[in-house]
C-alpha cells in the first residue's frame, strides 16, 4: 500500500463513500464543521481508484460536510492492495479519535474476516491502543464470537467489555436468557460481570439452564417490578448473589439481624470478618470527644449483655 503524492480536487458527489472499512463513520462532529467553516479543508481525504471512480478510504466526516456545503473535496490518492490495507489506512487517518470499546470492537469486526487471529492480536490490537497480552485484548476478541444483539448492547453502553468473560463461557441459549437483564439497564463493570458469572456458575453447579436459575432467583420477577434503574440493578445483583451463595447469604442475613438487635440505639457497628470461618465478630465505633468515648464504653458494657449474642456464637458452625 502506498500513499501517493497525487493530490487533487474533486466534486464531493464523485467520491463513493460506502466501503465497509469506514467502520467508524457516523454523524460528523460539530467541531469539524466549525473548523471547515472557518479554515476550509486543512487535510485531504484519502481515496483510491476503482473501476467506478474514486472511492473514499478515509475522511468520511470531511466528505459528508463538504458535500452538504456543496464544496469540492481535496483528496489524496492511495494505492490500497486489499481491504485489510484500507482498514489500516482508515485507522491511521483516525488515530486522533478517542476510542471506546464499541469502536474497537467495530474495527475488529471489520478485520476479523480478513486476518487470522494471530494477526488481529499482533497487528490490529496495538493500532487500537490495546496490548495483545492484556485482559482487554482477550475480552475484545471474545466479543467477536458473541451474537450481534450482545454487541449492540456493548455499543449502547449497557454491558461492560469484561462481560465477554462469562458470556463466552455460556451457551447461546443461556446468553439469550440473560440478555433481558441488559436490554434497558446500563451495568457497571463489577456488577455486570458478577451477575453473569454468578448465573453461569450456578447453572453449571446445578446442571440447569440460566433461564431456570434466573427464575429461581426471582430475577425475572424483579425485572417486571418497574424499579428505577439503580434499584433494579441493586435488586438483580442481590438476587444473583443469593442464588449463587445461598448458605452464605443465609448466614449473613442472620448475622445482620442479630447484630442490629445487639447494637440498637448505640453508635457501635458490628461485622463478621472472615466469611464465617470462625465465630468472630468485629465491633467498631467512631468517637471524637471524651464524652463520646465514655458513652461508647457504657454502651459496650450494656450490649455485651444482649441475649442476641447467643445467636452469633454458633453461627456458621452447622450447629446453630
Amino acid at each position: 500500500m502506498l500513499l501517493t503524492s497525487e493530490i487533487f480536487t474533486a466534486p464531493a458527489a464523485s467520491i463513493r463513500a460506502d466501503g465497509a472499512h469506514l467502520f467508524w463513520s457516523g454523524n460528523p462532529p460539530k467541531s469539524l464543521a466549525d473548523s471547515l467553516a472557518e479554515f476550509g479543508q486543512t487535510a485531504p481525504v484519502l481515496v483510491c481508484e476503482t473501476e467506478d471512480g474514486p472511492s473514499l478510504v478515509a475522511g468520511h466526516s470531511r466528505l459528508a460536510l463538504l458535500a452538504a456545503a456543496g464544496q469540492p473535496v481535496l483528496a489524496r490518492l492511495v494505492e490500497a492492495e486489499d481491504d485489510a490495507d484500507k482498514g489500516r489506512l482508515y485507522l491511521a487517518d483516525n488515530g486522533h479519535r478517542v476510542m471506546d470499546d464499541s469502536m474497537r470492537l467495530a474495527a475488529l469486526e471489520y478485520f476479523a474476516p480478513l486476518l487470522d487471529r494471530a494477526e488481529l492480536e499482533s497487528d490490529i490490537l496495538p493500532r487500537l491502543g490495546v496490548r495483545p497480552t492484556s485482559k482487554d485484548a482477550g475480552f475484545l476478541l471474545a466479543w467477536l464470537d458473541l451474537e450481534p444483539e450482545w454487541r449492540a448492547l456493548l455499543a449502547a453502553g449497557n454491558v461492560p467489555l469484561a462481560a465477554a468473560g462469562p458470556l463466552a463461557r455460556m451457551t447461546a441459549e443461556d446468553r439469550n436468557a440473560a440478555r433481558p437483564l441488559f436490554a434497558a439497564l446500563s451495568w457497571s463493570r463489577s456488577n455486570g460481570v458478577n451477575v453473569l458469572t454468578w448465573l453461569f456458575e450456578t447453572a453449571r453447579m446445578s446442571a440447569s439452564p440460566v433461564a431456570e436459575v434466573m427464575d429461581r432467583a426471582g430475577m425475572n420477577a424483579a425485572l417486571g417490578q418497574g424499579l428505577s434503574p439503580k434499584d433494579a440493578i441493586a435488586r438483580l445483583t442481590a438476587c444473583a448473589r443469593q442464588v449463587r451463595h445461598p448458605e452464605l447469604g443465609r448466614l449473613q442475613a442472620r448475622y445482620a439481624e442479630a447484630a442490629a438487635e445487639i447494637t440498637a440505639g448505640t453508635r457501635w457497628r458490628m461485622a463478621q470478618p472472615d466469611n464465617f470461618e470462625t465465630g468472630s465478630s468485629e465491633l467498631s465505633v467512631q468517637v471524637k470527644t471524651p464524652e463520646q468515648l465514655s458513652r461508647a464504653a457504657r454502651e459496650l458494657t450494656e450490649l455485651a449483655e444482649s441475649p442476641a449474642w447467643g445467636k452469633l456464637w454458633d453461627l456458621g458452625s452447622g450447629n446453630e
Partner: peptide
C-alpha cells in the same frame, strides 16, 4: 462443576468450602 460450590476465602487466603458445609 464442583468448583462452583460455595467457596469463600479462608484464613490462609485459599478458597474453602463455607464452614457449615464442611462441618
Amino acid at each position: 462443576t464442583y468448583i462452583y460450590n460455595e467457596f469463600v476465602p479462608g484464613l490462609d487466603g485459599k478458597a474453602r468450602l463455607l464452614r457449615p458445609l464442611r462441618v
